[in-house]
Amino acid sequence: MNETVLQGINLTVGYAQRAVLADVSFTIGPGEFVGLVGANGAGKSTLVKTLRGLVPALGGSVQLLGRDIRELAPRTFAQQAAYLAQNTEIPFAYTVRDVVRTGRYPYLAWWQRESAQDMAIVDASLAFVGMAELADRPLRELSGGQRQRAFFARVLAQQAPVLLLDEPATGLDLIYQEELFRFCRESCAAGRTVLMVVHELGLAARFCSRLLLVGQGKLLADGKPQAVLTSARLSAAYGAPIAVEQSPVTGHFDIFVPPQVIREEKPQLRTLLFGRGTMDEEP
């Protein structure tokens, strides 16, 4: 029995020899719902892309289901791990169904067409994200949240045991956001493994079984949400004092970010940005 699904071994990730995160090591087992958290530009997206093999690691290696990802054939890799990117632009007027259909690509040999069963999987994925009625609309005519749901349907159609999701909740309204997190939690309970970049720390704490916190060019913390979401660790990761309080009743986290330093220390800039937009304004 293989208890390791996804493993990073001394990973250094970044672009063109400039490392963003160095020496990251972790092991994720089946059924874990891992949230990847950290400040903007901390390297979360780059780490996820490296795990999916879309960006080569600058150092170290990634193991997926016991094999080095560099040895995996592209379609085998895609059958095992589905990836959802941030801000994807689709050229031309491809419809929602066209996009979701690409999720079946890893299962088709080059001479094959999508079978009736493939299309049934596509339709079920569309129905799950509530996009069945918009299936024949061009993707680029839809709102950001609707597009995000279409891409999530593509991930579902891929039927991979490992999901690597880069901010899938962006643009989703309250209902779909909750749905998304519930779906991930349930499918992890059923044996899937999810690694998700999350910005909403409260949601991450409620749903994820484990959090990875990145910042200052390294993996700062790895563990259960209540162990990771401490004032000291978040302050280090985000570079500003952050207060954390866990409600003893609901167990939910309350995360308090103090006003930006600029408001306190640079009154003339404050006037420029918050006032009527002139520097010479007298109080």
Partner: peptide, 23 residues
């Protein structure tokens, strides 16, 4: 003509195509 399906995947952009396992 035979590879029209693959061309659809390719036309969605490099990242999308690679994410679904296209060489």
């Amino acid at each position: 003509l035979l590879l029209a399906r693959q061309l659809n995947v390719l036309a969605m952009g490099e990242m999308e195509a690679r994410a679904v396992g296209m060489a």
